[in-house]
């Protein structure tokens, strides 16, 4: 059994950013955080049995839309990635691809025990046990399976976290990309790569930290065939 205490249920508080000079900036940030917490489009990656609890959460019985939560179809449109069940190695590749295609700020919710520690697939050779080793998980909703009430309760917790600005694990993915990439490489091999240029994105948006690059990203660059956007060119 892995050490349950290591599962990050609450992430640490980040140091407050340097004071903004514009007095309205605070109000504006507040508004943006409010909007982000009250409008969450979710992409449910239905990997396992937990998906069955989502339709009741969305439809007339529990109606997530009254909280501003809606299902969406593609990663580009989504804010939350719901991983609803056990994560096999093959599936995990797709989950990472999907996660990286989502625009930030983005949140990951692991539903069911399987995403927490592998659950009943603990002994499976083909199952990734702990989702948060590969992706920055905002919240786990444990249970086998969690009832819709629990799902909505989790969503509300996430909303509160977003609004207070306390929880921003999506930045963690950029800032400690090397760590996550290392775990991914451990599972998929050294030639693992996704089409999204995470390091480039981190630098473009000023999200890079000291641990963005490291030994694992060097391995990545060794194997990577970089996908650089086609530049408009006149000659």
């Amino acid at each position: 059994m892995s050490d349950l205490s290591k599962i990050p249920i609450h992430t640490e508080k980040h140091a407050p950013e340097e004071a903004r000079t514009n007095p309205l900036a605070g109000v504006f940030d507040e508004l943006v955080r409010f909007a982000q917490s009250r409008s969450m489009y979710m992409l449910h990656y239905c990997t396992g049995c937990g998906a069955i609890e989502l339709p009741p959460a969305m439809t007339s019985r529990f109606d997530m839309e009254r909280l501003g939560i809606q299902p969406m179809v593609t990663p580009r449109q989504a804010d939350i990635l719901l991983v609803t069940g056990y994560v096999s190695v093959k599936t995990l590749k797709r989950i990472i691809l999907t996660y990286e295609q989502m625009p930030s700020p983005k949140y990951v919710i692991g539903i069911c025990s399987c995403t927490v520690n592998g659950g009943m697939y603990w002994q499976s050779y083909a199952t990734a046990k702990k989702l948060s080793e590969y992706l920055p998980v905002d919240l786990y909703i444990a249970g086998c399976m969690p009832r819709p009430e629990a799902v909505i309760e989790g969503m509300r917790a996430l909303m509160a976290n977003i609004q207070s600005g306390e929880t921003e694990p999506w930045k963690d993915y950029y800032q400690r990309y090397d760590y996550y990439l290392g775990n991914q490489q451990h599972l998929f091999g050294d030639n693992w790569q996704t089409p999204t240029d995470v390091i480039g994105q981190a630098q473009h948006y000023g999200l890079a930290g000291p641990e963005t690059e490291g030994e694992h990203t060097r391995i990545l660059q060794q194997y990577q065939q970089p996908l650089v956007a086609h530049k408009l060119r006149l000659k």
Binding site: L31, V32, F34, A35, Q36, R38, S39, T59, S60, D63, E65, R66, G68, D79, P103, S104, P105, Q201, Y205, L207
Partner: peptide, 22 residues
């Protein structure tokens, strides 16, 4: 037979989309 979205939901959605970081 649902409750439906809150009053400001359409506006909130638009603000959210425009305020995405990436």
């Amino acid at each position: 037979r649902r409750v439906g979205p809150p009053f400001f939901q359409p506006l909130i959605d638009i603000i959210k989309f425009y305020s995405k970081t990436t």
